[in-house]
Simulated scan of single mutants.
Amino acid sequence: MEHRAFGFTGVEIPVVGQGTWQMETDDEAACVDALQRGIDAGMTHIDTAEMYGSGAVESLVGKAIAQRRDQVFLASKVLPGNASYAGTIEACERSLRRLRTDRLDLYLLHWPGSHPLEETLHAFKDLRAQGKIRHFGVSNFDQAELSKAIAIAGPNEIACNQVLYHLLERAIERRVLPLCERHGIAVVAYSPFGSGRFPDPSSTAGKVLASIAAARGVTPRQIALRYLLRRQPVFVIPKAASAAHALDNAAAGDLRLTGEDLARLDTAFPLGRDRGVLPTL
């Protein structure tokens, strides 16, 4: 599994991690097994949030990482509605209890909300000073929102922006990704398979994806993950509700694509026009 530095933090983590959105709708035992098999395969970055299943997914993750906490780079998120100064502190404490741990490696504001960002970032810094989080960042922030967060927090403080990014949705490449590159901010791609929008294998683009996968003896999903990782700040967190799916995702961590492969994918899945907004699910 390839590792790279998580932005300016310098912390080396795997390029392929594990997402847990909507895991509360899946079989719990199978999900715990998938997460544990994923850790075994090198996917030690696990991402969750207080929103997922109203805390149920954090509890599930807590079961999966029991006795293995030191192997994991653990991330969670605070809901915007809870992101006042006091609310952020309290939300973090709840997440820590559900996750059965005394610290998070990364804590994110799930999306921009109505509470002043100054309050949220102040709480993040105090949580870090208390040893309850190691790093903090944001999620679903567009260029203007991220620039504001950087200005408020100061340089080398916003460690990550977690955003929607997949073959059929490359909007972050226009403004957000370049901004993150300039500031040493990690980009974590959620829903890297499009959350139900994975390319149709009978489409022209889907056939290109399938042909590259066949030539390399891998799956189209592995090619899709690897394509997103072609720029240094990017990490991916696909969800897997079964061990087989987790292992398939992990295999993308050691895959390499040629310049020709990348050019063919660029043509098959064009960037599209600049809509001036950051898409979310």
Rank of each mutant, 00 (worst) to 15 (best):
P201W: 04
E119H: 11
F73R: 10
V208I: 14
E50V: 11
T101G: 06
I65P: 00
A210R: 05
R174E: 00
R221C: 03
I13L: 08
H110Q: 14
G272A: 13
L109R: 03
A240N: 05
E93W: 11
A251D: 04
F6W: 04
G55D: 06
A252T: 04
V208L: 07
K77Y: 04
A171G: 01
L167S: 03
A252Y: 09
A268I: 11
P201T: 00
D254M: 12
A64M: 12
Q162L: 11
P201I: 06
Q22W: 12
R273H: 07
V138T: 15
L96E: 05
Q232G: 00
I89F: 11
L168H: 06
D274I: 12
A83E: 03
V138A: 10
I152G: 03
A75R: 02
I158S: 03
G19K: 10
A171N: 02
T44D: 00
H3M: 02
R221T: 11
D261G: 07
M51F: 11
T25C: 03
D200T: 14
K77F: 02
V78K: 03
G62P: 06
R69V: 05
Q232S: 12
A56H: 14
I46V: 15
A263H: 08
R128A: 13
P112T: 13
V61W: 02
G154M: 10
V277F: 15
V176Y: 11
G81M: 12
L247K: 10
T204L: 11
I150M: 12
R170Y: 09
I46R: 01
H3R: 12
G194W: 05
R182Q: 15
T120D: 00
R273K: 13
D27W: 10
E118T: 13
A189N: 02
T101P: 06
D254A: 15
P279E: 00
R68H: 13
P192Y: 08
G131H: 10
E169Y: 04
G81K: 12
G194D: 00
L167G: 04
V277Y: 15
N140T: 13
I158G: 01
L228F: 14
D26I: 04
E145H: 14
L247M: 14
S195Q: 13
V61K: 01
V163R: 04
G137L: 09
R4P: 01
V188S: 01
A252K: 09
R175F: 10
R182H: 10
R264T: 05
P279W: 09
G38K: 13
T258G: 14
A252Q: 09
V187R: 01
L96C: 10
G194Y: 11
Q222L: 11
